[in-house]
């Protein structure tokens, strides 16, 4: 029971400060759940985001459900999801009831211009930390490049590829041409051995 309550509270806090969309949540999750509580790892978080991207629903919610489930099965999933929803629900109820022109207030706009700068920086740092374990060879770098370019350029193209489709395509590509982690390690050590031989 105490663990469920902890899950609820942890995600309640994250839901209250999760400005700027699902991906902005990653640094918050890292600090609270990886560094502080040790409930999950940065690599697992990254995998949850990939799955959350190509399943229905809001990414932030999907990730909350995932972590909750892995911690305490179904009750954990419900506790984490409800915790994440509580802050936004209360806030919107207050805004709907009292503050009709909330987003037009100059002070709110300035504050959020500042917050967005910080969100940018947080996202960049999350990417830097995950890079080495995600982009491990030339092939995975190509996957990164193709998806990044398609994703960014879809704004300027007459047609756009839905992000979910890109992620699913990357998964299928991985099944066809990718390596498991064990295979990757084996290939890497073989390459090292070969190189040593050539040096001699």
């Amino acid at each position: 029971m105490k663990e469920l309550f902890d899950l609820y509270i942890a995600f309640f806090k994250i839901g209250c400060v999760n400005f700027g969309g699902g991906y902005a949540m990653l640094p918050l999750l890292e600090k609270d759940l990886v560094t502080r509580r040790g409930w999950t790892t940065m690599e697992h978080l990254r995998d949850y985001f990939a799955i959350g991207q190509c399943t229905p629903g809001i990414i932030a919610l999907n990730v909350s459900t995932f972590i909750g489930y892995n911690k305490k099965k179904l009750p954990g999933a419900i506790a984490a999801t409800c915790g994440f929803l509580t802050g936004p629900i209360l806030l919107i109820l207050i805004i709907a009831a009292f503050l009709t022109n909330f987003a037009d207030l100059a002070i709110v706009q300035h504050a959020f211009a500042g917050i967005r700068v910080c969100v940018c920086v947080l996202i960049v740092q999350a990417v830097l930390r995950l890079w080495n374990k995600s982009v491990i060879d030339v092939l995975s770098f190509l996957i990164f490049l193709v998806i990044f370019v398609l994703n960014v350029s879809s704004r300027f193209l007459p047609w756009s590829v839905p992000a979910a489709l890109l992620v699913i395509a990357a998964g299928i590509f991985g099944i066809l041409f990718g390596r498991t982690e064990a295979e990757h390690r084996a290939a890497a050590s073989e390459k090292n051995a070969k190189k040593k031989k050539e040096d001699h």
Partner: peptide, 13 residues
């Protein structure tokens, strides 16, 4: 599958 999903996730982020 995750070999492909990981760089995809980073690209999205």
């Amino acid at each position: 599958a995750f070999y492909g999903l990981r760089p995809a996730s980073i690209a999205m982020i």
